[in-house]
């Protein structure tokens, strides 16, 4: 019995560091937030309680649930736009680029921005889209616009553009991997059986790449859903997202219980999406077994 335990010691030692990390910095904070979400705000601070008032407020006050809906809408738009751009790109890389050197170069071109600070990448769009920005100067220079427009920045459009730019690598990576895994002879077999290249894309490549699409969409949606920097930098008054509201509850509004309740709701939404995506992918993978 003793020998058996000694055997397991090295394994436990290896596991202990990440385990301690996860407990200290994930489980305990979550637990604290979860506890706070039932507390009562009592000026100037809050008192321990167990009541669902904070949750009730989120779903009763349009100020909160509309932000949730808007956040969902923006996340959906970012996901759709990323997919629209990422899929053809990944398809082109995997099936059309013959040289593997060019392929990895182009792939890295999409992934490389991940090494650059997130804040910087979001900030760049301010200089591109602003009324004194690169895009406006260009449009005025070409004569398309007679004067700079301020329609490009501080609205939902600028947020969707910025967030798509920031999170598109997370869409490209899983789709690229999924496409690369499709045996080339399946595409050949489709052609052999009289199906045109477009038909092969619709009937063979797309269905077999769905796991990658689902994974990419999940990443992009969840990352966007919890984002609060882009709304702060390039979003306008109609660009406030749920994470901004949470930040303000912990800051200016000094309503930690409501902020915690919002955070719990956000967490639950994201977990539901991840669970759904997991089930969808599992269903899709059966065929590839």
């Amino acid at each position: 019995m003793k020998g058996f335990r000694l055997d397991r010691l090295p394994g436990l030692a290896v596991l202990s560091a990440p385990l301690v990390w996860a407990v200290l910095f994930l489980f305990i904070p979550y637990l604290i937030i979860f506890t706070y979400s039932f507390w009562l705000k009592k000026y100037p601070t809050f008192i321990p309680a167990f009541q669902f008032g904070n949750y009730a407020q989120i779903f009763a006050d349009p100020q909160y649930y509309q932000v949730l809906l808007r956040t969902g809408k923006i996340a959906l738009m970012v996901t759709a736009l990323s997919l629209l751009l990422a899929y053809p790109f990944a398809y082109f890389l995997v099936f059309k680029v013959k040289s593997s050197r060019v392929r990895s170069l182009l792939y890295m071109a999409v992934i490389a921005p991940l090494w650059v600070s997130y804040l910087l990448r979001a900030y760049i769009w301010k200089t591109i889209l602003g009324s004194e920005g690169v895009l406006n100067s260009f449009l005025v220079w070409t004569g398309i616009l007679s004067a700079p427009t301020d329609l490009l920045l501080y609205n939902q459009f600028s947020m969707v553009v910025t967030l798509t730019y920031i999170f598109i690598p997370f869409m490209v990576m899983p789709i690229f991997t999924a496409l690369e895994k499709i045996p080339r002879n399946l595409v050949e077999a489709a052609g052999d059986l009289g199906v045109t290249p477009w038909g092969a894309l619709a009937k063979v490549i797309w269905p077999l790449s769905l796991p990658g699409v689902i994974a990419g969409a999940t990443f992009t949606f969840c990352l966007t859903f919890g984002d609060f920097i882009a709304p702060m930098l390039v979003g306008g008054p109609d660009g406030v997202m749920i994470a901004n509201v949470i930040t303000s509850q912990y800051g200016a509004a000094l309503n930690w219980p409501l902020g915690s309740a919002l955070a719990v709701v956000l967490l639950i939404i994201v977990l539901i999406i991840i669970e759904l995506s997991d089930r969808l992918q599992r269903k899709d993978r059966i065929g590839l077994g």
Partner: peptide, 21 residues
């Protein structure tokens, strides 16, 4: 002529069956 316009069909070495159908 591209493969899809030829009246020939092939049995592939590792069969190349469509795994999702």
């Amino acid at each position: 002529l591209p493969p899809y316009r030829r009246d020939v069909n092939m049995v592939f070495q590792d069969y190349a069956l469509f795994p999702h159908l």
